[in-house]
Design a protein around this nucleic acid. Structure first.
Lengths: 238, 238
DNA sequence: GGCTCTACGTGATGGAGGTCACATTTCCGG
DNA sequence: CCGGAAATGTGACCTCCATCACGTAGAGCC
């Protein structure tokens, strides 16, 4: 089930194995050829910073393998993780398009691979190809949407438990109307979860205890089970 | 100084009186003609909802006169104002491009006027004209940036006073290095300010008192004076 | 097996700010 | 100029969570 962690370069990394919304899927052949010409592929070890908050944008990274966390920090060191990126995601697009500094730091959480497209090449490619520009615009608006969800979570939720419930729900694939329990792998530390919902590690630890007691979640090793989605939704004010 | 509040239709509302970043400025003539053909102009009284959170996107509004507030609400009624839009701003672009429901409600705060461009027309226009699509992408990434600022404010600031200081700073035009006091019109109620920084009206009221006492702001009628920008920046952790 | 380092669990404590209540002022339409 | 509504000022209270402090558990390593 897991992405290969070896260091060999994956071929055809821009193709779309799963998700329809990938940025450069199903383009016309000439566009694909042009794309292959301007992209470059590289392999990154764990903890690599693909780019750092505040840097001038060099271009975008299309993640092929591995996960990356995107986060931003205040001068006092407080940090919020805004997204855990997975293969297929495009990183640094907003900064690159608007030519403003990267607004987040992107750090590999595991060894992985990514395609890089330099800013000038991408902008030129967009100008020549309206379809590509539309795709980019769509991707940007998706990014905006998830930023908006973040705002709603941070701004509208009154308690850490509410935010925690929202986070759990966002992890669980919405399985139709059925109320079958969702289970998934928990790969984040309490510290990281705390940085995602704007609270402290200790509070997250207590939240896990509370939620277990209330039968809102179970942990078997690193497998997280959510037996009662509706109750979570009630907690999250949905 | 104030925009006319009469109900006559302003001509040439898509032109750019002030700001360079307006969406459709300085386009080639044929594009401008096309634009004038697909847009329609209307006048809206105070408290009009241009669109409502959750509605399917009909298209975008380019605000010509008047201010509008953009906000989103939780089911329990708690509300956050994410932006005060001013003439020249483009409203509803993200939802329109991604064809997802409007993520906010846009409500006129004063009588005003806006151009409307229907979704299909806009998308078609973008496809035919790569330059327009690039402009749209740039606008989207600007929107994303301000959403990001919001996230930083809500997520990284620990106290209401910190957020309040940030808000005041965001209102004050950054006047070079000089430390001349900034003054500006205060058009929002304490309630609205509270909804912008995620706190309560009472707390905002107390913040005004505290900040006055600490010589961080003065109020002359509805004119707000910030005599000590550096001190505000310190409060905001900048 | 023992060592170290990181992740996690949990109690005690204090204070910031949300909540409620009510007084006062400002605004605005008639 | 007046009356009601909306906006604002302020006190009292009390909850929730950040903080501090420590103990424990597990993972990797020699």
């Amino acid at each position: 089930m897991r992405a290969p962690y070896g260091l060999e370069i994956l071929d055809n990394c821009l193709s779309c194995p799963v998700r329809e919304e990938h940025l450069f899927c199903n383009l016309a052949l000439p566009a694909v050829q042009r794309l292959n010409h301007i992209k470059s592929t590289a392999v990154y070890p764990k903890a690599t910073m693909l780019f750092i908050e505040g840097q001038q944008p060099r271009g975008v990274f299309v993640l092929c393998a591995g996960k990356a966390k995107l986060f931003t920090s205040a001068s006092d060191g407080k940090t919020i993780i805004t997204k855990i990126s997975e293969p297929g995601d495009v990183l640094g697009l907003n900064a690159t398009i608007s030519n403003r500094p990267y607004e987040v730091t992107a750090e590999m959480m595991e060894p992985g691979q990514a395609n890089f497209i330099a800013r000038d090449d991408l902008v030129q490619f967009m100008r020549e190809n309206g379809e590509v520009a539309v795709r980019v615009a769509e991707q940007l608006s998706r990014n905006y949407y998830s930023a908006y969800e973040e705002i709603r979570t941070l701004g509208l939720a009154s308690s850490p438990s509410e935010k925690f419930a929202k986070l759990l729900l966002s992890w669980s694939p919405r399985a139709g109307n059925a109320s079958e329990p969702a289970n998934l792998k928990l790969t984040l530390t309490h510290e990281e979860i705390a940085e995602m919902i704007g609270t402290t590690r200790e509070t997250v630890s207590r939240l896990f205890s509370d939620f277990k007691k209330k039968r809102l979640l179970q942990l078997k090793g690193s497998t997280l089970i959510l037996p009662n989605r509706p109750a979570l939704e009630r907690m999250a004010n949905l």
